[in-house]
Amino acid sequence: MRIDLTDTTSSKINKALVQGRRAIGTPAVGMVLTLVIVTDEENAYDALKAANEASREHPSRTLVVVKRFSRSPRDRSKARLDAEVRLGADAGTGETVVLRLYGEVINHAQSVVLPLLLPDAPTVVWWPVNGPVDPAKDPLGALGQRRVTDTYAAEQPIHELTARSENYTPGDTDLSWARITPWRSMLAAALDQLPTKVTSVEVEGEEFNPSCELLAMWLADRLSVPVKRTLSAGPGLTAVRMETADGPIVLDRADGSLATLCMNGQPDRAVALKRRETSELLAEELRRLDPDDTYASALKFGVDRLGAVVEKAEAEASKTGEDAAASETKPAPAKKAAPAKKAAAK
C-alpha cells in the first residue's frame, strides 16, 4: 500500500508507517537494517528498484532522499518535505519511504532521516550517483556505519578514486569494488590451484572503469609486483594476465559473461563471470557491515603508484625484453588516464 504525505514531518511519517503496518496486518517487523539512498529524481527509480530486490536478502527500511532543487530564490528559501510511504508488495520485503526535499531543508536532510532510522539496527547510506568527496563527513553519511559510493558513475572516476583514498574512513566502500569480487575470487582460486610466485601482472579493461584500477591496485598491494593497467574496448574488465614462475595465468573475458582461464600445464577452462546487476552488488555490500580492510588497503595503494610501477615495469621490460611475450598481443597504449568528460555515466 502507499500513503502520500505532502508538506509533512518525520513524526507524521513515522505515524503513517505504523498505521500502514496495522492496515496491512503485519505489525511485527523483522527488518535488519536501514538503507538510506541519496539520489536525484533521475536515478531514484533504478536505485529503488535495485534496493527492493536486494531487500529480499536483507529485509530493510529503505529511505530514499531526493533533493529537489528549486529555480526561484523565493522557493529556495521555503522548506517543504513530501513523503511517499510504501509498504507490503510495493516495497519488496521491507518498507520504503521516498522523501522529497524542497528549499532550505535540502541542507538539513539528516534532520529528516534521523528520526526515521530503525532503532538499534545498522544504517547504510548509498549514493548511486554524485557521492560526496568525503562520505564520512557528509551530514547524511555520518548517520551510517557503512557508506556506499559508486565511483563508476562519477565523471572522472580515476580522480575520484584518489579522492576516496585520501578521505577514506573505515566503513567506506564502493560498488566498483563489489563489481570485481568474482574476478578476485577466481584469481585467488587460480593461485590456490597453482601455488607459484607471480612476477608481474597486467589488467586490461575499458577506459574510465575504476574497477580495473581497483583490481590492479588490489593485485599490486597483495602481490607486491609491478601491475600494468592497459586499455581495451570492454565491456568492463576484459583480461588479467599474471606472469608467474610457472608460466602465465590468464583470465580472459571478451564478451562480458563467459571467461576462459588458461594456466600452464592445465587445460583451458570456461568460467562464468557475468557482469552483475546493481541489486546483486548492493546485496553483497549489505552482507557485511564491518569495515572492509581489504578495500582500504587496495584503495590506499594509490592510482598514481600504479602508474609509477607501470613505468618502472616497462623500463625493466624494455631493458630485459623478458616481458615482451606478455604484451605483444596488446594494443598497449601506454597512456596515463586523462579522463575526458564521460559521455554516459551508466
Binding site: T181, R184, L187, A189, L191, D192, Q193, P195, D293, T294
Partner: peptide, 22 residues
C-alpha cells in the same frame, strides 16, 4: 587451501570459499 596464497586474506570476507579442482 594453501595459506601461502598471497591473494587470500582472512580479512577479506568478500571472497567466497571456492572448492579446489574437483
Amino acid at each position: 587451501m594453501s595459506s601461502s596464497n598471497p591473494l587470500r586474506d582472512a580479512q577479506d570476507r568478500r571472497l567466497p570459499r571456492i572448492a579446489g579442482p574437483s
